[in-house]
Design a protein around this nucleic acid. Structure first.
Lengths: 221, 221
DNA sequence: GTCTATAGCGGGATAGAC
DNA sequence: GTCTATCCCGCTATAGAC
């Protein structure tokens, strides 16, 4: 057991480097040698800490996605009124995708890869957790007359979550579309988050619910 | 020049096989041998028709994305009223992503790849075409009092396009979320398209515009 | 135009020195 | 724990027969 490693132990440095490279190039396009070089360590060290390249990749996925999936339920307190709950989920999704700059692309690659084979279990957890919760909240809102009754709850949940997800996945292109060089500045990400929540709520609320806004709630930071 | 090739000439067979494999596995993970095997042809034939693997990939991208980008402007007739125009763009995007089952994943990989290096020019065209057109329509709608004035046109365009894009990219996961085994059936894709258009329009229209629906327009098939 | 055979390189992974 | 050296395999690409 390592005793004292104040700044950057080797496994973490390797995970960081691997995460960045896997996210921007994909699994097969990223070589062991690149990872070593990017971490400033000898590539052979990878095989001291991880059994092979594939399981290094799993470790990368698990460190971010797994950690979120395990803590997600606790962050989505039950008993919130539907519209508040939906805002909370959008905010949580944003915070999640923001927690690492590479996360969204990592996730997008897994989604594009045939059946998301490597991250299957993690994605299953995300699906069963936040997504299911969201559809339930939509149904609740419909029963309460706050959400338009014609909406398909599953489709609506997809529409709501897609906005933030796509914003991060397509980041390089979105940045250019919005007139920025390189990445979208943090300030603009905040504004988009606020926009996405407003967009979703405007899309789903009934005229009467919209007419009686509960409060001018803000997205959690 | 080939005289008569009623069913599946070699280059097309190779492009088809390559498209499917690149989309589901990515560029580097797909081997020349796999492509040959999947096309039922000798892998060496690839080098008779294409200079190398990378340019085969470019040909795959260009055949689908390029073809769309070149014909897109013609399909988005100017002069439509803003809300009609927005519906038309959503329908065109749907038709595009639907034209090949692999297109969305191919595109998602390029978007996730650092700076979308390989498809840069094609993505630029898509960006400058339909996306710009969409933001203009939003601004027009705001001036006409049909679209809520507080909305940021760029953000709104991202929100609108993200729904359909994400639906296709995340297809395997979305299918499971919506309770289907494997792919989402065509019938449900239609329903989602209708939903996405309605969702977007509800999100952006002012109360007065919503109160005077122009007509119960349907998504083009 | 299509196929066989193979060159040549770069990848993942390991043995073992320090 | 970290590094050097290297093995072996599978990949892209080519030469050339048919």
């Amino acid at each position: 057991m390592p005793i004292d490693r104040p700044h950057g132990d080797a496994p973490t440095a390797l995970l960081d480097a691997a995460e960045q490279l896997f996210a921007s190039q994909g699994f097969t396009a990223t070589t062991i040698k690149q990872i070593g070089a990017s971490a400033g360590l000898n590539p052979a060290l990878i095989y001291y800490y991880f059994p092979d390249k594939l399981r290094l990749y799993h470790a990368v996925l698990d460190r971010r996605l797994g950690a979120f999936a395990r803590t997600a339920p606790a962050r989505l307190p039950a008993g919130l009124p539907p519209l508040e709950g939906i805002r909370t989920i959008i905010a949580a999704q944003l915070e999640f995708l923001r927690s690492s700059p590479h996360l969204a692309r990592l996730l997008a690659r897994e989604l594009a890869d045939h059946d998301a084979a490597e991250a299957r279990s993690i994605i299953q957890q995300l699906a069963a957790g936040p997504f299911r919760r969201l559809t339930e909240l939509i149904r609740e809102g419909q029963r309460a007359g706050l959400i338009r009754p014609g909406l398909d709850p599953g489709f609506t949940a997809v529409s709501i979550m897609s906005q933030v997800a796509w914003f991060f996945v397509a980041q390089p292109v979105v940045a250019r579309l919005l007139g920025h060089e390189g990445r979208v500045p943090a300030r603009e990400v905040d504004r988009f988050a606020e926009h996405a929540a407003g967009f979703a709520l405007a899309a789903i609320t009934t005229a009467s619910a919209a007419a009686t806004p509960r409060r001018r709630s803000r997205v959690a930071r």
